[in-house]
Computed example of a mutant assay.
Amino acid sequence: MYDLTGFQRDLLYVAASEDEPNGLELKDELEGYYETEIHHGRLYPNLDTLVEKGLLEKGELDKRTNYYRLTQRGRREIEARREWEDQYVAVDA
């Protein structure tokens, strides 16, 4: 996961939280977080990168709509990232 941009990491986390979201659902969620418009030219190339890296699977809902699903590798990468973060970020209970 070290080779992902912050945007790609956020995109992966959002995809992991949904059940087979489509691109527009991911876009809407990220726009709420970033408080700015996410253009298709930014969203879809980054989704394609996550698919190429084996972190997401891409499937077809219909001829115009794809869905994305976290892979086993994607889940392992998120878990490893969280373990690494926990070494540096202490959360007081």
Results as ranks from 00 to 15, higher is better:
residue 80 A to S: 11
residue 46 N to D: 14
residue 55 L to Y: 13
residue 30 L to C: 11
residue 74 G to F: 08
residue 42 R to C: 08
residue 79 E to C: 02
residue 67 Y to A: 05
residue 92 D to P: 03
residue 8 Q to V: 12
residue 60 E to C: 12
residue 75 R to P: 04
residue 36 T to A: 10
residue 85 E to M: 04
residue 24 L to Y: 12
residue 61 L to V: 15
residue 92 D to N: 06
residue 56 L to F: 02
residue 31 E to F: 07
residue 17 S to C: 05
residue 65 T to S: 06
residue 24 L to S: 12
residue 7 F to C: 09
residue 17 S to A: 15
residue 61 L to T: 11
residue 8 Q to Y: 01
residue 69 R to V: 15
residue 64 R to I: 04
residue 42 R to T: 15
residue 78 I to K: 02
residue 18 E to I: 06
residue 32 G to Q: 14
residue 9 R to M: 14
residue 60 E to A: 13
residue 22 N to I: 12
residue 69 R to D: 03
residue 55 L to M: 15
residue 11 L to H: 08
residue 26 L to Q: 00
residue 9 R to G: 09
residue 60 E to F: 03
residue 75 R to T: 15
residue 85 E to L: 12
residue 70 L to E: 02
residue 62 D to S: 15
residue 74 G to S: 02
residue 26 L to F: 05
residue 28 D to K: 14
residue 37 E to Q: 13
residue 23 G to K: 05
residue 12 L to D: 08
residue 37 E to P: 04
residue 10 D to K: 14
residue 2 Y to N: 09
residue 74 G to I: 11
residue 29 E to M: 10
residue 63 K to T: 13
residue 3 D to I: 05
residue 81 R to F: 08
residue 1 M to H: 07
residue 55 L to W: 07
residue 48 D to A: 13
residue 16 A to M: 08
residue 26 L to T: 11
residue 48 D to C: 03
residue 71 T to K: 02
residue 38 I to N: 01
residue 34 Y to W: 06
residue 8 Q to W: 03
residue 10 D to N: 11
residue 65 T to W: 01
residue 24 L to H: 13
residue 23 G to D: 11
residue 60 E to G: 02
residue 55 L to D: 09
residue 78 I to Q: 00
residue 39 H to G: 10
residue 41 G to A: 09
residue 54 G to C: 13
residue 16 A to S: 14
residue 38 I to R: 00
residue 40 H to M: 10
residue 60 E to Y: 03
residue 6 G to N: 10
residue 26 L to C: 10
residue 28 D to W: 03
residue 12 L to N: 02
